[in-house]
């Protein structure tokens, strides 16, 4: 209780600034035993109550590959000058809510696809970026996954911003996503 008043004061005196807070997200890309496995495309974002996008946190898709240098030796992977942007609309919700309006790649958001396993993402409102100017409110962390020759899955975890107390929130996918863990810390 001792802290409440200065908190409220700070917020009132400095509108637009929210106190430092951390969002640590762990996303499990499940190991799927199929003959032809391709790593999934995954998008991670914060959704407002009206389903609009408050912040894009991450999108993993196949990156551009340059043509191999003509030096002989082991054959390099096939060049892919456009990368996999062609398949980004398969992340249907993400594409609809923000992907289709972005100029890709987006610094700090775009990244390569990831192998099965747990992947940690960390966001801190002090360090600028997505959370720096996030107004107070009810949000959802949304994770969407789409896989070539596979399925699609979308999972969300609601949370309150700004963060009042440390909390661990969990959700679990059925097939295309494994455990999703959201650690919020004031």
């Amino acid at each position: 209780m001792r802290h409440r008043i200065p908190f409220a004061l700070c917020a009132a005196l400095l509108p637009g600034t929210v106190l430092a807070a951390n969002l640590n997200v762990s996303i499990e890309v499940p190991r799927i035993d199929v003959a032809e496995y391709h790593r999934p495309y995954v998008a991670v974002w914060l959704e407002r109550e009206d389903k609009s996008v408050a912040a894009n946190l991450s999108v993993w898709y196949q990156q551009k590959k340059a043509a191999p240098a003509a030096t002989g030796g082991a054959p390099a992977a096939a060049p892919n000058p456009a990368g996999g942007v062609k398949w980004l609309p398969d992340l249907r919700q993400w594409w609809r809510r923000s992907g289709r309006e972005l100029q890709l790649p987006v610094d700090g958001v775009s990244g390569a696809t990831r192998a099965p396993g747990e992947h940690a993402l960390s966001f801190n409102s002090d360090k600028g970026g997505a959370l720096a100017n996030l107004p107070a409110g009810q949000y959802k962390l949304v994770v969407e996954s789409a896989r070539e020759e596979g399925g699609r899955e979308l999972i969300d975890i609601p949370f309150q911003w700004p963060v009042k107390q440390a909390q661990q929130l969990k959700a679990k996918g059925e097939r295309e996503l494994g455990a999703i863990v959201l650690d919020v810390k004031p």
């Binding site: 456009a82 942007v85 062609k86 980004l88 609309p89 249907r92 594409w95 609809r96 289709r100």
Partner: peptide, 9 residues
């Protein structure tokens, strides 16, 4: 064949 696509497709 599809109606929601990306540029260049």
């Amino acid at each position: 064949s599809k109606t929601v696509l990306n540029v260049g497709q």
